[in-house]
Amino acid sequence: MNVETIDQIIDNHQCEAGSLIQILLDIQSENHWLPKEALERVSEKLRVPLSQIQHITTFYKSFSLVPKGRHEVHVCVGTACHVRGAQRVLDTVQDQIGIKPGETDVDLKFSLETVNCLGCCALGPVMVVDGEYHGNIAPARIEETLKNYE
């Protein structure tokens, strides 16, 4: 990620320390993860200690300090999905792609995350791949669903 883009994002927020989280969210959404150089640049421009930025980027779930896979798999583990068997779905997804929530596989193909609620509880359990919803997903259907992603 180049310095100009980072500076542009910081300038969009008037270089205010109060906008730190908004700036980091914009960088994350632009680049899909937060490289260390970006954090150092933000720290320098906003005059916020790196130790604080480090805490913020690990405290809030939206941030990633490592590159993400080509496909982002989200399994909803909200309460409604939980009582409808989300754990079994998650277990099966983990078995199929071989990574745990929060991880990315070595080929950078899949990243797996759990989400607390997607607000489509009527469809539970729900798995979302790259923004596409797979509602009422059964463990038996996961393999063929994930096969469609290269």
């Binding site: 200690p49 790196l50 130790s51 604080q52 690990t58 405290f59």
Partner: peptide, 15 residues
């Protein structure tokens, strides 16, 4: 380190 020394040489991570 932050309040007295103002160095911020260490911090918390995660939650």
């Amino acid at each position: 380190c932050a309040e007295v020394k103002k160095k911020d040489a260490l911090g918390f991570i995660d939650r």
